[in-house]
Simulated assay, not measured.
Amino acid sequence: MRALLRYHVILLLRSQRWLPPSLLYAGLVAISLDGQSSLGSQLGWNAAVLVPTAAWLTRSLLVAEPPAARACLAAAKGVRRPQYAALAVPLAFALLLALLAAVPSVLVCPAPDEAGAVLLGGPAAGVVCALTGSALGAVGSPPLVRSTAGGAGVLVAGSVLLLVLTGSPANAAVRDAFASGAAEVRFPLLSLPGAVVLAVACWWVSARAAGRAGATAGGDPA
């Protein structure tokens, strides 16, 4: 598995497909750093924009691999394990972006009285949104959604819905992070396991679809 992860890291970096979603994230974070928002609100915003970013990163990597290279991986490692590795790398990249964005947020935003609790809840909200975006990217990318237009539609509509629907883990985590800017400090106790369950389910669906596609193409579905 380590070799698969290293392969997909190199593929993502060399393809430069990480640049557009990363620049989008950096731009959205930068325009919100006015020095007046509370730290909790800023970390909540950083987490919210991580949903479309993680989803875009996931699709960017899943469409970057040439069919011949995918066939070689399927023959050597099976179909599902490379799919899991291809989903794990963008998630790790999204978490790295969230960590980098937290540094200027802490430096620029006014520190609240309970800074320790906010610094715990804000990054936790980022983890929830990264997992939610990864789940969206898994179901909005090949082999489930192959067309570029279809994938873009799924990612855009899914990001909006996941951020505005009350039952979404991302929505709950962002609301908790914004509440951390007030007198009340909240940690996303329920949304964090919810996001984990959602990501695991969507990853499993994506890997299962990859296995079926590999079996149809004559590969090993294992």
Rank of each mutant, 00 (worst) to 15 (best):
L144E: 02
A201Q: 09
A138V: 08
P66N: 02
Q83R: 10
A125P: 05
A130G: 12
I10C: 06
A217T: 05
G151C: 06
P169K: 02
G126S: 13
L144K: 02
K77Q: 12
G151E: 00
V89A: 04
L50Q: 10
A209H: 08
A54R: 05
G122A: 06
D176C: 03
A183C: 07
V29L: 08
G153E: 05
Q83P: 02
G40E: 12
A222S: 15
L28M: 09
F187W: 14
V164F: 07
P21N: 02
A170N: 00
R175P: 02
R146M: 11
S38F: 12
P21V: 07
R70Y: 01
R2F: 15
G40Y: 13
R70A: 05
W56Y: 12
V174Q: 00
P52E: 09
A88L: 12
Y7P: 00
G194H: 01
V200I: 13
L189Q: 12
R186K: 14
L4Q: 08
R81A: 14
L163M: 05
S168K: 01
H8V: 07
A48L: 14
D220Y: 15
S60R: 05
R146T: 15
R2L: 14
A149H: 04
G78F: 08
A30D: 05
G140L: 04
V9F: 13
T216G: 15
A102P: 01
S168N: 01
A92I: 05
A101Q: 00
R186I: 11
G211L: 09
P188C: 14
L163Y: 00
G151D: 02
A94L: 02
L97C: 00
V154E: 03
V196R: 10
A183G: 15
A222E: 13
S147H: 09
A130W: 06
A179H: 09
A215M: 14
L192S: 06
L97E: 00
P142L: 04
R80Y: 10
A68K: 12
I10D: 13
C72P: 10
L91Y: 00
L190T: 13
G116K: 03
A195Q: 05
Q42Y: 13
A47P: 02
A117H: 08
A157I: 11
G44V: 10
L73D: 10
A172D: 03
G35M: 13
D34M: 13
P142F: 01
G167M: 03
T148I: 11
A75D: 15
G78R: 14
G214Q: 06
G153M: 07
V154Q: 04
F93E: 03
S168F: 00
P104T: 04
A124P: 04
A88Y: 00
S134G: 15
R208K: 13
G214W: 07
P66W: 00
L50C: 12
W203I: 07
G153D: 12
G140P: 03
